[in-house]
Amino acid sequence: MSDRVGAPPPSPPAEGATAVAPPPDEPPAPPRTRHRRAASGALRQDRAGYLFLAPWFAGMALFTIGPILASLYLSFTEYSLVKPPEWLGLDNYRRMLEDPRLAKSLLVTVQYVFVSVPVQLGLALALALLLNRGVRGLSFYRSVYYLPSLLAGSVSIAILWRQIFGSDGLVNQVLALFGVEGVSWVAHPDFALGTLIVLNAWTFGAPMVIFLAGLRQIPVSYYEAAEVDGASTVRKFFHITLPLLTPIIFFNLVLQMIGAFQSFTQAFVVSGGQGGPADSTLLYTLYLYQRGFGSFDMGYASAMAWTLLVIIAALTGLNFLLAKRWVFYSG
């Protein structure tokens, strides 16, 4: 999961699906050149706007755009901090194609993202539906289910996980009560990634809160009308709730997938920084860290970073394209 699990959502657009929504509409400004007063007003607003944005401009240049361009350049070089970068052309990218650990880390990451996100969102939706209407103590349940989302990104919880899923950990102690003998889950190549997927599922509370808010937007009158027509609960779910919830499902999906691609802390701590056993928890970000900050192969790490950027952009784009087929917008 992302190290920022439990994030409040940037608001999902109510109607349009585009993440890049234009700023709010304002009364159109008077034409800038016709009257001197209007022109000077516009100028003053320009200056005020840039002044208010000055810290952001500086931050963008120094910490975002500069680094993105620099890492593009570095990705074509060999660089280890001690000597100036040496131009390699496409060598880093060529090495990536032949690197078995890179292929493995991509595979692990894809498995992690495509299993853990649906599991997490499925749980979130199920619990949101259970909690939706007329449950007494809603805010209590919501808080209890939400708490793990805030904690799960911490090293403390990763440490706990490593113990729970160890050979004599809590899980095996409980299994022993039923006469089942467990293995050391974190030390088994077939199960280690599974423990991280369980950890991500544990954070279903954050998307659940978003689902709950979305469910509250559905007008009660729709259900009333359906009842007049004698619709069953199942029918109402598939013909009212689910279609009207698709924009929220989509929003959660995009958000959680991007987050899952960036998981790091849990895999790092549970595997002692190695991504083991047998590279089975070697998430892409973990491998990037090893190359960049373990062996200071900054050029290669930059090439990996750019590849990650392209993958996330492509996946998000694909999500938006596919959304046209299944996301329903009313009105």
Binding site: V20, F63, T64, S71, L74, Y79, L81, T285, M298, A305
Partner: peptide, 21 residues
């Protein structure tokens, strides 16, 4: 729009050059 697009930017893309800086 630029600001919104940075919402999706993974820190891992920036960390190497930031470290250099």
């Amino acid at each position: 729009a630029l600001m919104l697009s940075t919402l999706m930017l993974p820190i891992h893309v920036l960390i190497v050059p930031q470290y250099v800086l």
